[in-house]
Design a protein around this nucleic acid. Structure first.
Length: 272
DNA sequence: ACATTGACCTGGGAGC
DNA sequence: TGCTCCCAGGTCAATG
């Protein structure tokens, strides 16, 4: 469920409750996530202080005394601040109790998420070291995108969703950005013109920023750390709108599968 | 090196 | 009501 805006919304929501707190108790109810949670994680985390909560791509990084707790929300994960009296729902796999007696609870029905511990420098971690630039950083520029797309034969949609090229652009926002830039999703990356590249990069930044401001996108069940939905779904132009009228020209939105992911576009506004 | 596909897992909705 | 099938916001691993 979560794309970068949802992860960032989560990070901002939990930070005031968790930052600077000492971990008093860790309860792990289900170790089998995308990768198994290491079996001594509870004792490793015990009595460590969480100094900051950072984000790289869609990974949340909890910087502790002797290392970093890495949490990825996968497709269906969420983190909430709860109290001891809150009922433990079915897929609440991990609780991290802090000195203020608030509990950071990781819930993930599909278990595509991950909870990992590392004591090595975080940028050298296997999962992080090959990631492309953050989409909201200056490193993600029109020049950069134009250069790295040369001679690439995959489609532009698949290309921008690849974290080696740029991180944090998931299926919803890839669809939305290509619509807003007037680019057909099947355009070959190598055929992206300089001009379209100069259009697409700011559009990606803008759509992600707007979504963060709206608290993310709630399609079915995304909730921020306060249990509230995100409101960006109201601003979606094409995602999930097959057959509906394009907001710009009224043409029916088309739909197909691209690399196993639902793809939506306006045939009029996004010509091939 | 690059491109494509399968795999991981549960729940919800559509259709019968 | 209940069964089956298809779909879902991610991304690594294996294959060609």
């Amino acid at each position: 469920m979560p794309e970068l805006p949802e992860v960032e919304t989560t990070r901002c929501g939990i930070t005031p409750h968790v930052k600077g707190q000492k971990i008093s108790q860790v309860t792990i109810r289900h170790f089998q996530l995308r990768w198994p949670i290491q079996d001594d994680l509870a004792s490793v985390l015990q009595l460590q202080t969480i100094h900051s909560i950072e984000r790289r791509a869609k990974y949340l990084l909890f910087k502790c005394d002797s290392g970093t707790l890495i949490i990825h929300l996968g497709m269906s994960g969420s983190l909430q601040i709860v109290s001891e009296s809150d009922p433990i729902a079915k897929h609440a796999h991990l609780d991290i109790r802090c000195g203020n007696d608030l509990i950071l609870r990781f819930t993930d029905p599909r278990r595509f998420g991950a909870v990992l511990w590392t004591s090595e420098p975080i940028e050298q971690h296997t999962l992080l070291k090959h990631l492309g630039p953050e989409p909201l950083s200056d490193d993600f520029s029109a020049d950069y995108l134009y250069k790295i797309t040369r001679n690439r034969r995959t489609t532009i949609k698949t290309f921008i969703m690849n974290g080696q090229h740029v991180v944090g652009v998931g299926n919803i926002y890839a669809n939305e950005a290509l619509f807003l830039a007037g680019i057909h999703p099947k355009t070959l990356a190598g055929k992206l013109s300089k001009k379209k590249s100069e259009c697409l990069v700011p559009v990606i930044k803008n759509v992600l920023k707007k979504a963060i401001e709206a608290g993310g996108t709630t399609l079915k069940d995304f909730r921020n750390s306060d249990g509230k939905p995100g409101y960006f779904a109201q601003q979606l132009h094409v995602y999930g709108r097959e057959g509906e009228a394009c907001t710009q020209c009224g043409t029916a939105i088309s739909h197909y599968k691209e690399a196993q992911r639902a793809t939506y576009f306006c045939p009029e506004c996004q010509p091939r």
